[in-house]
Amino acid sequence: LFQRGGRSIDIEITGPDLDRLISLGGRIFSQVMEVVPGSQARPIPSLDLGNPEVRILPDRVRAAEVGLTAREIGAAVNALVDGALIDGYQYQGEEIDLTLRGMEDWFRTQDIGNLQIYTPRGQLVPLSSLATVEVTTGPEQINHIERSRAITIQVTPPEGTALEAALDQIEELIVQPLRDQGEIDPPYGIELAGTANDLKKTGEALQWNLLLALIITYLLMASLFESFLYPFVIMLSVPPAAAGGILGLAAVNLLISHQALDILTMLGFVILVGVVVNAAILIVHQTLNIRRADPDIETRLAIRQAVDSRVRPIFMSVITSAVGMLPLVLFPGAGSELYRGLGSVVIGGLVVSTIFTLFLVPTFLSLAMDLSDWLGRQVKGGGNAGAGA
């Protein structure tokens, strides 16, 4: 799933007719080089049908007359040509296969028709009397996807081209025109797979995971603070963290090396949700403690005292966390590109979120507390009026 581990897009073409699949594969192969300049394309298997092969077409009527089936004919030919596994035995803890095969010096292509097949009636008949033997050409291998013959065009975009952009270009300029022209109607089909498609699916899943992380974090803080208002103020530190993560990733791309938005990098944004709220929690929690100790204290004074007492541990925590993750970003070596994106996102998000938290959270906390006090007075006033009546 990591883009540096394998940046490829697989164009899977499926259908019953191998010749038509090869024709479609050749057209797509040539179009890919035009749509995604600088990319590398490789057909799997090869689009060349020049590989010599011997094709045996059983005559079912003749085979039935001697009591044989097409499967039994194929098994007999396979045993004499390639060998057939019949059993195995254990030797010094290892499984040794017993293979039945013909003599090594008997086989020549032109002699396959003279191969003697033993029938259930105890007769030996030549293969040529039961099947048609053709010496022809074909592909070096035949792949299947969900029981259909398949040819795959594997495309590797250049380093400067994002996988998602290349995927969209292939879908819009190659695949969709083929669908519009009806050339890949059932039983033929075409699908985009490979690491690019996996990355896209995982990215969509991570979007929901990010939303779930936000909801869980909010509900957990709501249960701890016994309020739905204060956790909302704390969650205001998340958007600056996302912006800081993007800035950190951009700085790595600009100053160090190209870093793709891969799965670990996306995971860094999910991690930020649970990390950057710590500074805001300290400020809100300390403010509430000060107000509980002195109910008559002014709201803004309580917030100012809370920030004064908590700014030092907040900066200590952020600095130690950022410095501790700097090796993930700065140190080279094998596999460093896997974690460089994660480190840059977390460091950038922590730094930017902390700076904005010291300004945003006190401001909105003051508004939230003023709103809470006003609502409390309204409820209390309404209760007194009802009691007086």
Rank of each mutant, 00 (worst) to 15 (best):
Q169R: 13
E53F: 00
G182A: 03
L267C: 04
E72C: 04
G67L: 04
S321M: 05
V277T: 14
L371T: 12
V346A: 01
G67E: 08
D82V: 00
D111M: 08
Y89H: 10
D198N: 10
L68A: 09
Q92V: 02
I142F: 02
G268D: 04
T299V: 15
A250G: 11
A84V: 09
G182R: 08
A389V: 06
I271T: 13
M325D: 03
L124G: 08
I44F: 09
S46V: 05
Y118S: 11
L272P: 01
S148R: 15
I355T: 15
T287Y: 12
G203V: 05
R7I: 00
L80Y: 06
R304V: 03
L173I: 01
V273S: 06
L127Q: 13
T137C: 00
N51K: 13
P177F: 02
R310E: 02
L206E: 13
L229M: 11
A322Q: 04
E140C: 02
L249Q: 12
V318P: 07
Q123S: 10
P177L: 03
T265N: 03
I355L: 15
V351K: 02
H285E: 13
A64P: 00
E53I: 04
A213I: 07
V276S: 09
L98K: 14
E298V: 05
A389C: 01
L236F: 12
T14Y: 01
G93V: 14
E337L: 09
A70H: 01
G5I: 07
F2V: 13
V175F: 03
R101E: 10
G25A: 01
G333F: 02
L338F: 14
D105E: 14
N289V: 10
E104S: 13
L255K: 08
I303V: 08
R149F: 01
V155C: 03
Y339E: 04
V133Y: 07
R4T: 08
M325Q: 07
G388D: 13
G88W: 13
A75V: 04
T202W: 05
L49V: 06
A322V: 12
I13P: 01
L47R: 14
A70L: 00
N209T: 06
A387I: 06
R121N: 09
L18H: 13
Y188Q: 09
S128K: 15
L375P: 00
Q3L: 07
V318M: 15
L85S: 10
L85Y: 13
V277G: 06
